[in-house]
Design a protein around this nucleic acid. Structure first.
Length: 219
DNA sequence: GCGACAG
DNA sequence: ATCTTGTCGC
């Protein structure tokens, strides 16, 4: 797919912070169109050095049939700084995103707008790809929420700055909830629907679970 | 100032 | 994220 990224991705945390604040103003909401293909992306690391493996898994909906996968090893240039994750993980993901067909939706392992400045990894990926994205994190970065009910599908709003920025979702019984927030081009409830339709028998949505396993196995 | 802090 | 064995529970 085509990527809209004039950035250099060779920045200091300080510059990244400025760019992030600037880009946040471009995030829009929206309704989820008909989804035929979903892309799950994830990045795993090797030890604490500067190498990582980025992976992407394309699946079909409905049915969640696997259509295509891609894994690539890359060097890491940016440190992990809470709130600046996209500047660390997007560079490694860029090559495989370009080689993958443009999907109708992208599920990202991390936050969307449930972020200090409203631009989590999922939002940033949405901006450079122009594809609707949803952030699906295993823990909360900002905001507060009640514990969702015990049944699969139960959810509770994530409130941040008096705004509903996403939902804590019980993706599977007996598991800790997932924290879903819109990345780009989706409203909170649409983001929730997007993740829900990609759930299988495990806690993580299938695209994310497979991308995670893929990048970790080829390690 | 203190504590929190996606992956 | 990653380093790690066995272990408790659905």
């Amino acid at each position: 797919m085509d990527i809209q990224s004039l950035n250099e991705w060779d920045l200091s945390p300080r510059e990244a912070l400025r760019i992030q604040t600037e880009l946040a103003g471009r995030i829009r909401g929206g309704t989820l169109p008909s989804v035929n293909t979903v892309l799950g992306v994830d990045v795993s690391y090797r030890r604490a050095d500067r190498a990582c493996l980025a992976a992407a898994v394309l699946m079909e909906l409905p049915g969640l049939a696997l259509l295509r996968t891609r894994v690539e090893r890359s060097p890491l240039s940016f440190p992990y700084v809470p709130g600046l994750l996209s500047f660390r993980e997007i560079p490694p993901l860029l090559p495989i995103l370009k080689e993958m067909p443009r999907p109708d939706l992208i599920i990202v392992d991390g936050q969307g707008i449930a972020h200090p400045r409203g631009l989590g990894l999922a939002s940033h990926i949405g901006l450079i790809t122009g594809v609707p994205t949803v952030g699906c994190a295993k823990s909360l970065l900002v905001g507060r929420c009640e514990e969702p009910g015990r049944e699969k599908g139960d959810h509770a709003p994530i409130i941040y700055g008096r705004r509903t920025v996403g939902y804590a979702l019980r993706s599977r019984e007996g598991c800790r909830p997932l924290y879903v927030s819109p990345g780009h081009l989706l409203h909170p409830l649409e983001a929730l629907k997007a993740v829900t339709m990609c759930l299988g028998a495990y806690r993580l949505p299938e695209p994310t679970r497979l991308a995670d396993r893929l990048s970790r196995e080829n390690r």
